[in-house]
Amino acid sequence: MESRMEFTYYPGCSLEGMNKAYDQSARLVSKSLGIDLKELNDWNCCGASAYMSIRELRAHLLSARNLAIAEREKKDLAVVCPACYTNLTKTNHYMGEDAKLRRTVGSALKAANLQYMGTVKVRHLLDVIVSEIGESEVRAKVTKPLSGLKTAPYYGCQFTRPLGDYDDKEFPTMLDTLLKWLGAEPVNFPLKAKCCGGILMTTNESVALSLVRSLLDCATQNGGEAIATICPLCHMTLEAYQGNVNKAFSTSFKVPMFYFTQLMGLAFGFSKKELGINQELISSKALLERRLEAR
């Protein structure tokens, strides 16, 4: 099949470690849809959430290096981690607006024999799939619709804030839409764009745990059987700390989590092994057997 959409692909550091399954499933389903993802050559860490707040200029240099290398390919840059998206987009945006920053970053890049002219557009993979590929092409690939699996679509705080203009900032609906195309049922999830705590779990655990608790509560109260994520950190936070939440609040959450690309993969007919399912901390085995494998 011909590749209609070509992107350079920036996996980001989290996808190499704990969240390998996200990378795996993303590459698989993208290939199915004709999205060609060429991994960015010699990419470096984007600085994640903390660096931009501590050393702004250097954080810009990290992102600018990635953008400069990407620009050589003359393609747009696809990412799956909202934090990477935010950092790359911020650098893109501020370099475009601020002549001084452009000059400073430009001279730093020059020292590494690089230059960046501002032509790369950074896209989150979910945005590419929903906005560019579209309904008919996605539905065409669905061979095993998800039997109305009640899924809470979780966007987290950085998907559209501050610079993601492709969906409503406070109440995004892209993932809800995609879940419908896959045959799943997105449940009403009022807290879908609220913070999971993220790194706060290491610095202020009690606050972070109560945030996770609210999210799990809200997702399950509205009938959610599983949570779909688009961010590796949110995914890990919501999954790994369910036990701690249960201990702290005497709850009994056991909500399976899926990367949105894994759900896509299941609907497209890929095997659990190919999608990295059964590597997770909270087993989805029972849920999948009960709801999907019986179809």
């Binding site: 406070e170 009022p190 807290l191 609210s214 509560d217 809200c218 109260q221």
Partner: peptide, 8 residues
């Protein structure tokens, strides 16, 4: 900041 129907 918002109006929600999620009761806590």
């Amino acid at each position: 900041a918002e109006v929600t129907d999620f009761a806590q």
